[in-house]
């Protein structure tokens, strides 16, 4: 089982990296999400995978042999909540980018390095605000 999980995490990492190397912004976002899942799966595998074993420690006996470690699951829950927030923000950002630049292609976003003629777009925006 652990072997399968490891393969799954590896595949997710590979697919995520492939996706973030794409030019389309939406695909990059999908890639980031997949990488997040891959990291979560990795966290999940950090504790031994067990079924039907409570995460309880007997006060007298100490840590029993089969004991489900709850920590990674708590970590994943937190990580999922964080990635929920990040995703919501990223989607809003992508919409804004598309509205402002009129493109979803990362290759066309060079204004930060080469000053580009954004005057007309800016004036369009100002019209919109009015």
């Amino acid at each position: 089982m652990l072997f399968l999980m490891a393969i799954a995490a590896g595949v997710l990492f590979a697919v995520g990296i492939f996706m973030i190397l794409r030019r389309s912004m939406v695909k990059v976002l999908v890639g980031i999400l997949l990488l997040g899942y891959a990291a979560n799966l990795l966290l999940f595998n950090a504790a031994p995978l067990m079924r039907g074993v409570p995460p309880l420690i007997d006060p007298v006996m100490g840590v029993p042999a089969d004991y489900a470690d709850p920590v990674p699951q708590a970590l994943i829950l937190t990580a999922i909540v964080i990635s929920f927030g990040v995703t919501a923000f990223a989607v809003v950002l992508i919409r804004r980018v598309y509205a402002v630049t009129g493109t979803g292609d990362l290759d066309n976003m060079h204004c930060t390095d080469i000053p580009c003629e954004s005057e007309e777009i800016l004036s369009d925006l100002e019209d919109e605000i009015k």
Binding site: R96, V97, V100, T101, H110, T112, S118, I121, L122
Partner: peptide, 8 residues
Amino acid sequence: GERTQIEG
């Protein structure tokens, strides 16, 4: 939300 800013 200027263009350069949002690309950055």
